[in-house]
Design a protein around this nucleic acid. Structure first.
Lengths: 222, 222
DNA sequence: TGCTGTGAAACCGTTCACAGCT
DNA sequence: AGCTGTGAACGGTTTCACAGCA
C-alpha cells in the first residue's frame, strides 16, 4: 500500500505495459468490477501476471495480499504515475491531411489530451478550420499562442525536411514534448521529450515478417 | 560476402535498426558515396558501429575487411532481406479522416508500398474517392477485390469496437498482414502478421516523461 | 488458503575487444 | 594499416518460485 519514488530509469517497455494495464482497468471499472488479481488481468487481457506485479513494484505497493487489486484505486494511482491526472494541451504543426486527421481524432482529444490549434505556413490554409473546428493558424503566431496558454506537446505532421526547424520553433515557444510523425529521426533535444513515430518503419516491419513468415513457423509478436 | 539464412528469431529492435540503416544508405547512394565504414555510418547518422555489424551478422557477411561496405550493394541486399524488393499491395479499412489521410500519404505509397483501395460500410462514403483518388468501396466487396488482385497488407483505421470483425474479414479475404491503428490490442491471429500501432500510447508515454522530467535529470530516449 | 511482492535464475540484447582478412 | 566479423563480458529485462501477509 506504500508509495515509492519512481526509480532513476523506468523502461519504455514498462510504461507501455502500464498504459495497457490502465486501459484494462478502465474497462473493468465500467463493468463495476471491484477487485481483480494479476492472474485474472493476465488471462482476460492477454498480459503476464508476474510482469504486472514487477512493473507495479517499481512505483510502490498497490495490492492486497490474498485478495488482489482494488480496481478503482489502482486505476487512479496509475493515472497519477503516468501523469494522466492533469490536462495536456497540444498543438499540431502541419495542417495537411494527416495533421488535420490527428487534430480531429478522438485519440488526441480524450483523457485530458486536447488539440487546441493547428499551425501551418500555407496561406491558403491559414485562417481556416479543421472539420471538427480546430483553427489553423500561421506558424509565425505560435510563440504568441504559447504565451497565451501553456502548450505542453507539439505534434509534427510536416514534411521530413521541415522537422529540424519545426523542432526549434516548438522549443523556443516553450513546448516541452514533441511527437514526430515525419519519416526522419528527430535527435534528442536538450530540455525536450522527443518521441519519433515513423509510420514507414511499421510497414517495413510487416514487410520483413511477410518475407520470412511464408517459409518458417510463426514467432509471437504484438 | 556470404549469405546466411535468417535465424529463427530476429528481434524487432534489429529490424527497426536495419530500416534506419537502409534509409541512411539511400541518402549515401544519392550522394554518390561508393563505400562506407560502420564507423562513418555511426557518426553521421547517430547509429552504433558495433551494433550495425552485429545486426548485419545475423543475415550474412556484407562488408570488405579493411575497406567497409559498398553502399549500393549493401542497400540492395538489405532491401532483399527486408522484403522491400517486391511491391506490396495494401488496402485501408475505415475511410474516416485518419484512414483517408493514411491512404493518401506519401509514406504509404512509396518504396513498393501502394494503397489500392479504401473500404467502409458508410453508404455516404462508398463510391467516392480520397483526395488523391483512392476509391472508397463497400467493405462487402473486399473478398471480391482480394480475388482480383492479391492484397498483402490491411490497414485498420476503424473504431476500436470494429477491429475484431474487421480482422476476420481481412483474414478471410486472404490478406496476410494487418497494421492496426485503433486503440485496442488486436491479438495475434494464426496465419496473420499483426502490428498494433496505438497512437494513444505514444501520447501517454510523453505524458509519463513529462510527469517525471520536471523533477529529475533527463534520460536518453529515441 | 490465496495472492502480492520480491529475491534469484534464466534469458536476451548490447558493448567490448580482438582475431583475421584485404 | 584498416575495418569487418565475432566470441566473450556485461547489463538489463523477463520468468520463476516462494516467503510473507491478509
Amino acid at each position: 500500500m506504500q508509495q515509492k519514488e519512481p526509480p532513476d530509469s523506468v523502461s519504455e517497455a514498462t510504461t507501455h505495459r502500464l498504459s495497457l494495464l490502465l486501459r484494462s482497468l478502465r474497462i473493468l471499472e465500467e463493468e463495476g468490477v471491484g477487485t481483480v488479481s494479476s492472474q485474472q488481468l493476465a488471462e482476460r487481457f492477454g498480459l503476464n501476471a508476474a510482469q504486472i506485479r514487477k512493473d507495479l513494484a517499481q512505483f510502490g505497493e498497490f495490492g492486497v495480499r490474498g485478495v488482489g487489486y482494488r480496481v478503482r484505486e489502482l486505476k487512479e494511482r496509475l493515472n497519477a504515475v503516468m501523469g494522466l491526472d492533469r490536462p495536456r494541451t497540444m498543438v499540431v504543426l502541419g495542417a495537411g491531411h494527416l495533421g488535420q486527421a490527428l487534430a480531429d481524432s478522438k485519440n488526441f482529444n480524450s483523457d485530458g489530451f486536447r488539440v487546441v490549434a493547428l499551425f501551418d505556413n500555407d496561406r491558403r490554409k491559414i485562417g481556416g478550420r479543421s472539420r471538427t473546428g480546430v483553427p489553423i493558424r500561421d506558424v509565425a503566431e505560435l510563440p504568441a499562442a504559447a504565451r497565451e496558454q501553456t502548450i505542453e506537446i507539439g505534434v509534427l505532421a510536416v514534411p521530413a525536411e521541415a522537422v529540424p526547424s519545426a523542432a526549434v520553433v516548438l522549443r523556443n515557444a516553450g513546448v516541452k514534448a514533441i511527437l514526430n510523425f515525419a519519416p526522419i529521426t528527430l535527435a534528442p533535444v536538450p530540455g525536450l521529450e522527443v518521441k519519433n513515430v515513423d509510420l514507414t518503419l511499421f510497414l517495413e516491419n510487416l514487410s520483413y515478417r511477410l518475407a520470412t513468415s511464408s517459409d518458417r513457423p510463426r514467432p509471437k509478436r504484438g
